[in-house]
C-alpha cells in the first residue's frame, strides 16, 4: 500500500480527532453544540439534544441552504449514529433528489443514512414520529413539502414528546413562509450567504445566514453568519464579514455587485482540448485541473 501524502494523513487525523471530540464533547449536559462559541455561549452550550428543532427556509430558493445547515446540525447531533431522513416524494421534483456524494462532501457518510420516501404529508408525519421514538438512532431529519395542514401544533407536540422521550435530536426542515405555532424547542430561519471566495473567485465553503426566530430557552431573536467546516465537522462564525462590501446586504443592489465582481473582465477563449494558452490572461474563474 502506498503511503498517503502528508496533507491527506493530516486531514485524516483531523477528522478522527473531530469525531472523537464529537463523541466526548459536553454531550453529557444533553446539548448539541455548534462548535462556534459565538453561538454556543448565548444558547448555553448549544441546542437541546432530546428535542424537536425547526429549520425554516424563507422560500424554496433557500431550501438547499437550509438543508445544508440541517445536515450540519445532524452530523453534530448524531455522534456517528445512524441518521434517518424522511423525505416527501414531491421534493425530488422541486429541489432535486438527495445526492449522496454531496452529502459525503458535507461530512455525512451516506452509509449512515436511512432514507424513507413518503408519499404525502401524513406518511412523513407517521414515519417521522415512529423514527423519533427509536432511541437507537443518532438523529432524525423530517422534510415535508409545502405547508400541509397536518403539521399543526398537535403534530409538532407529538414529535417533540417522542424526541424528548427517546433522546434523539429531531430536525424538522421546511420551506415555508408561514410559521405556525409549534412545540419545537428552537426555530431557525436559514438563508444562503455569499461564501468567502477562494482563489480565482471560486465559491468557498458553505455559508449560512442564521436567524434564531424562537427559543424556548428564552434567548430573543438573534442573527449569526456561519460557515460549515467539513474537515472539523463544526460550524464557525464568520467574525468580521470579509466579503466585498457589495455583498454585505443580500440582494443589495445589483449595480454595485456587478462593479465589484470581476466578471466584466474580458475572457480568453479556452481551447476545448488543451490547457489555456501560455500567457493568457486570468479569466477570473478557477479552472479544474
Amino acid at each position: 500500500m502506498n503511503p498517503k501524502p502528508a496533507p491527506l494523513v493530516l486531514a485524516d487525523l483531523r477528522r478522527s480527532l473531530a469525531e472523537a471530540a464529537l463523541r466526548t464533547a459536553p454531550a453529557a449536559v444533553g446539548r448539541v453544540s455548534f462548535g462556534a462559541p459565538a453561538l454556543d455561549e448565548p444558547l448555553g452550550g448549544g441546542i437541546a439534544r432530546a428535542a424537536l428543532h425547526e429549520v425554516y427556509a424563507p422560500g424554496t430558493a433557500d431550501l438547499a441552504a437550509a438543508t445544508g445547515f440541517a445536515v450540519g446540525l445532524t452530523i453534530r447531533a448524531a455522534q456517528m449514529g445512524q441518521v434517518l431522513w424522511v423525505r416527501q416524494d414531491v421534493l425530488d421534483a422541486e429541489t432535486g433528489r438527495l445526492h449522496p456524494p454531496g452529502l459525503a462532501e458535507l461530512g455525512l457518510d451516506p452509509a449512515r443514512i436511512l432514507l424513507v420516501r413518503a408519499r404525502d404529508a401524513q406518511d412523513v408525519l407517521r414515519a417521522g414520529a415512529e423514527a423519533a421514538r427509536c432511541s437507537a438512532l443518532g438523529a432524525v431529519l423530517i422534510e415535508p413539502w409545502g405547508e400541509p395542514r397536518l403539521f399543526d401544533l398537535t403534530a409538532s407536540r407529538r414529535l417533540a414528546l417522542a424526541a424528548e422521550a427517546s433522546g434523539v435530536t429531531t430536525v424538522l426542515l421546511r420551506a415555508s413562509a408561514r410559521q405556525d405555532a409549534s412545540a419545537a424547542r428552537t426555530r431557525w430561519l436559514v438563508r444562503a450567504l455569499p461564501s468567502r471566495a477562494l482563489e480565482a473567485n471560486a465559491p468557498g465553503d458553505p455559508a449560512f445566514s442564521l436567524r434564531l426566530l424562537r427559543d424556548r430557552g428564552g434567548l430573543g431573536e438573534r442573527e449569526w453568519r456561519v460557515e460549515w467546516d467539513r474537515d472539523r465537522q463544526s460550524f464557525h462564525e464568520r467574525a468580521a464579514f470579509q466579503a466585498r462590501p457589495a455583498f454585505q446586504e443580500r440582494a443589495g443592489n445589483q449595480g454595485r455587485a456587478q462593479d465589484a465582481a470581476p466578471l466584466s473582465r474580458p475572457l480568453v477563449p479556452f481551447p476545448a482540448d488543451g490547457p489555456a494558452a501560455e500567457g493568457a490572461r486570468d479569466p477570473g474563474f478557477r479552472r479544474a485541473v
Binding site: V71, G96, G102, E105
Partner: peptide, 14 residues
C-alpha cells in the same frame, strides 16, 4: 472529500 476544499458535488441533484 478532498481536505480543505469546498464541496465539489451538490447536495441535491435534479
Amino acid at each position: 472529500p478532498e481536505p480543505n476544499e469546498p464541496p465539489t458535488r451538490p447536495l441535491q441533484l435534479f
